[in-house]
């Protein structure tokens, strides 16, 4: 009867680590969601911010988008290789992905230094009477959002490096997938940031 019905294990059985990363990703999205939500609200209130957004480098931004997308793709490749237990290919593809992370960070630092040299910094100056620096808060948001995202890029690279070192010894191959999931998240967040910060002018 009802009692006898279901002695089998619970039907949904997702691998432990994948489930954990999913929950983590949801939490991360809420943080970025909060920040992006605030940014959009301010942006709608102050259309003048578009003038400031014009100073961001769409070229480097686009370049970085391509870099991240490519590295996301190579991570998928690494995952496939992990399924085939092909240690060499794992090493190759993960290294390429980590390299992508480096490229991203180098681009980013070039971008930061040109912006800072043009006087756009994190701290927002006081408003002038005619409101001409009203967009200064744009740069606060810009550095906060991209900086936080950059920190995630570094975390993602460390995770992939860790997975890589273990995979070379043939251990914990599932971690290739987990670090890859995290990397996809980092990528996805950038896909949100790029149009909001660079393209909307």
């Amino acid at each position: 009867m009802e009692n006898q019905k279901s002695l089998s294990l619970p039907s949904i059985k997702i691998p432990q680590g994948r489930l954990g990363i999913w929950t983590l990703i949801v939490g991360e999205f809420m943080i970025f969601g909060g920040l992006i939500g605030c940014y959009i609200l301010y942006r709608l209130r102050y259309p003048e911010w578009a003038d400031q957004a014009a100073h961001t480098s769409t070229l480097i931004g686009a370049l970085n988008t391509i870099v991240l997308l490519t590295s996301s793709f190579t991570v998928v490749k690494a995952h496939e290789a992990a399924n085939r237990k092909d240690l060499k290919k794992i090493t190759l593809w993960l290294s390429v992905s980590i390299l992508g992370g480096f490229l991203f960070l180098i681009n980013k630092s070039i971008e930061y230094s040109t912006e800072i040299s043009h006087g756009f910094t994190f701290s927002s100056p006081a408003l002038q009477a005619d409101g001409d620096t009203i967009g200064s808060l744009f740069w606060s948001f810009y550095f906060l959002l991209t900086g936080l995202h950059g920190a995630h890029v570094i975390v993602g690279m460390i995770l992939m490096l860790w997975a890589l070192l273990q995979a070379r010894k043939g251990k914990n191959l599932h971690r290739v997938e987990l670090s890859g999931m995290y990397w996809h998240m980092v990528d996805l967040i950038w896909i949100f940031l790029f149009p909001l910060l660079y393209l909307a002018k």
Partner: peptide
Amino acid sequence: GPLVAGAFMLLFDITLGS
């Protein structure tokens, strides 16, 4: 999440002058 976001902004308002 949103509170963490808010706390970031608060912390940077205090320390970094945003």
